[in-house]
Amino acid sequence: MESNLITEDKQKNKLEKVFEILKTMASRPSGLIGLSIVLFHIVLALISPYIAPYDYKAISPNTMLLAPSAEHWFGTDSLGRDVFTRTILGGRTALTVTFFGSLIALLWGGLLGIFCGLVGGKIDDVVMRVVDAFLSIPWILAMLLIVSLLGTSTEVLIPALGFFYGKGIVRVARAATHDVIAKDFIVSARARGHSNMSIIWNEIIPNVRDAILVEGAMRWSWMLLGFSSLSFLGFGVSPPTPDWGLMISNARGLMSFAYWSVIAPIVGLSSLIIGINLTADAFAKALGIDRSTKAPV
């Protein structure tokens, strides 16, 4: 009975901690704005299928390129589709793909980085040189290659983006691990005879978690930009899926007389990126990691 009480107590503490961090983040204006934007986008992405006024793929020659009005808030595009509907649904794709992409990037990048930092020596040398080699390949070319070989489904895009954005995390995780690895509590765990896995799990991860999470949050916004660029070039999700990059690309040529079909996705994309960036900065400050003093890798 009593031990149950303890675990409950601990869990409560963890929730409280998360809450405390959110509170600290919201205490700065920039953090509050960032959090609100991100929250707004997430909520919108969750409820958009239910509130969308039109069918996103319903083409109609009668409604081509209508200016914003009471019926079509953001106007319609060259195929007569409602821009408002497509914009709110477009955020859904972008958020899903990049969220899971970042998660994959965090997992493989973080774990590999921690492992390399811990074992050091020749394994570390080899792995890091391979990572460096990958870093030197322009990611967009590599992505184009993958997409043209394997297709543009989200099942391909998520792991591919996750892989390319995880490389940078490897270096951050390795550097963060080096900061703690020389500390006596790790030496102490080694002397007790703990296995490498146990040392990573119990001693290192709690101490590098914050740095890696902040890095992951930053990568998320970059990945969003990258994903939209791919769609813009026609290598992201395929039409008629509503997507911001795709929408911008389609409406680009008509910008001079039907600006409305390009403005809505641009505002959506840039506000989400700004929101994530502000949130990541506030998150870093709330955790006591000052990004400005550490060189980005």
Binding site: D184, F185, S188
Partner: peptide, 11 residues
């Protein structure tokens, strides 16, 4: 082992 500096030897 017990270390010199408990700030560093305790996680």
């Amino acid at each position: 082992l017990i270390f010199q500096n408990p700030d560093e030897s305790l996680n």
